[in-house]
Design a protein around this nucleic acid. Structure first.
Length: 301
DNA sequence: AGATTTGTTACCGACATGAC
DNA sequence: GTCATGTCGGTAACAAATCT
């Protein structure tokens, strides 16, 4: 199964409105038989696809499926986007520019409950599970309870009204109204544990700007790090970095590139690798790390 | 009405992949 | 290696819409 073909079919349909199976089969260099199988899969995934026979017929999406909100309820639109997203999220990794185009089509015209980025969704089953639960909670406006571990490792039990899933930087975040703090908060998915759907509904509007003051988050300076990490930390590397940014060296160590919002916390992050990580670039961070380690050594001497 | 265009379904064989 | 499973291609027969 070539998942890219499915997305591209949807994209072509959005673009051209109507296409015959034969045209599609030529475009993809597969048989019409295969195209029909794809159509089956797509409609199974909740995409409102239909066909017309005879001259001028072909395959199309239900009219104005993106543009006309009255045809599809808000909820249906959400689910279409979700079904695309989860197809992608499940396991198919080769996702390409078509998805970007698709996401702009959706983002512009459709709902905004999720900021689609179509980046890799990791390989972690429990994260997929979390994603699924949260998805359900958002779509049905159900209150969630979970344990949350702050960056200091502090654990708090939260009850929150989930509003939006956002992909940002290196991972997924849940934007929700936290009843513990009585504020809108952003939770990193990876730090959320023991997620439970409470049998309670809520009503709350999503504020226009969820990332704080306008533009603020976009002005954050980013730092691109090149790290060499010891083989011993392999389990963390594949958890924390994108696969295509990982290079395995001859001696078994790994070189990875990652872009982070700059800030003091980067040092903490790098140092959490202890002796097993070495900063190659940028030089100033390399120096700073060295200095910090040296200071730390002083304490022990 | 009959030809043409397009979708729909069934069946079978080839091939790849993963499990045992 | 063998077996099961899944994907794809080819063909054939049929249904429905449209054209001449």
């Amino acid at each position: 199964m070539q998942i890219n073909r499915l997305f591209e079919i949807v994209y072509i349909l959005l673009d051209k409105k109507i296409v015959t199976a034969k045209e599609l089969s030529k475009h993809f260099e597969v048989s019409v038989r295969t195209i029909y199988r794809d159509i089956d899969i797509l409609s199974g995934a909740g995409i409102p696809i239909y066909t017309n026979k005879g001259k001028g017929g072909g395959i199309s999406l239900i009219e104005d499926f993106v543009l006309n909100k009255s045809v599809l309820s808000e909820k249906e639109q959400k689910e279409i986007l979700m079904s695309l997203q989860s197809l992608n999220a499940m396991k198919y990794l080769e996702v390409e520019p078509i998805l970007k185009k698709l996401s702009t089509v959706f983002n512009k015209k459709s709902t905004n409950w999720i900021d689609v980025d179509f980046s890799h969704w990791g390989s972690n089953d429990t994260e997929k599970e979390k994603f699924k639960i949260i998805k359900t909670a958002i779509l049905n406006s159900e209150v969630l309870s979970f344990d949350y571990f702050s960056s200091y490792g502090e654990k708090t039990s939260r009850i929150a009204e989930p509003l939006k899933l956002v992909f940002k930087g290196q991972g997924w975040y849940l934007y929700a109204y936290c009843r513990l703090k009585n504020e809108f908060r952003i939770f990193k998915l990876r730090r959320i544990h023991t997620l439970v759907l409470l049998n309670e509904n809520f009503k709350r509007e999503v504020p226009a700007n969820i990332w704080g003051e306008a533009g603020k988050s976009y002005d954050i300076e980013m730092v691109t790090l090149v790290l060499r990490i010891d083989e011993k930390m392999a389990y963390r590397i594949f958890d924390e970095f994108e696969q295509e940014n990982i290079i395995r060296n001859k001696d078994g160590s790994y070189t990875t590139t990652i872009t982070f919002p700059s800030g003091e916390w980067i040092f903490g992050y790098i140092m959490s690798y202890g002796e097993y990580a070495e900063v190659i670039e940028p030089k100033n961070i390399r120096k700073e790390i060295k200095r910090k380690f040296e200071e730390s050594v002083k304490k022990y001497s």
